[in-house]
Amino acid sequence: MPRNPRPRKPTVPQLLKSAALLSDAELRSLISGLAAMECERGKEVDRDEHGKPLDQEGHIEKRMVNGCGPYKYLRWWEGGKHRAVYLGKADDEKRSV
């Protein structure tokens, strides 16, 4: 009888790409849920004077690639490496990302 394989755990880049598709209200709910999970685990996050986590530096970057685009990337520093996740083609948005 074949074994049922365990479902694969999604990677952080996959989760971030999916999160980019959420509405503002859904994104706020996700952030609240993640903050609650972090508190439940008993982890205190060190923050700077503006309330930004010290170990998380990230931003959305829009850039042209080979004359096409612009394309959106989520960029951040992690473990001394500059990471990026492709979020999709940037359209003319009324709200800032």
Rank of each mutant, 00 (worst) to 15 (best):
D91L: 14
G42D: 00
V65Y: 05
K17V: 05
L30I: 01
N66G: 05
Y86L: 02
D24C: 02
C68H: 10
L27D: 00
P10R: 12
E49K: 05
L54C: 10
Q14M: 04
K94L: 08
S96H: 09
L16A: 04
E26C: 01
R63P: 03
S18W: 08
G69H: 07
L22M: 11
S18L: 13
R63D: 03
V65S: 07
V85K: 01
R41K: 15
D48E: 01
T11V: 02
V97K: 06
S32P: 07
W76R: 05
R75L: 08
R83H: 04
E44D: 10
K43A: 04
S18C: 12
C68Y: 15
L15N: 14
E40Y: 10
E38V: 15
G67P: 04
P5W: 12
L21H: 09
Q14C: 08
S96A: 09
A25T: 11
C68F: 14
L16I: 09
E93T: 14
R83K: 12
V97N: 12
R8P: 00
P7Q: 11
V45H: 02
H59T: 03
E57W: 00
H59V: 01
P2S: 12
R75W: 05
V65A: 13
R75C: 15
A19M: 06
A20L: 02
R75T: 11
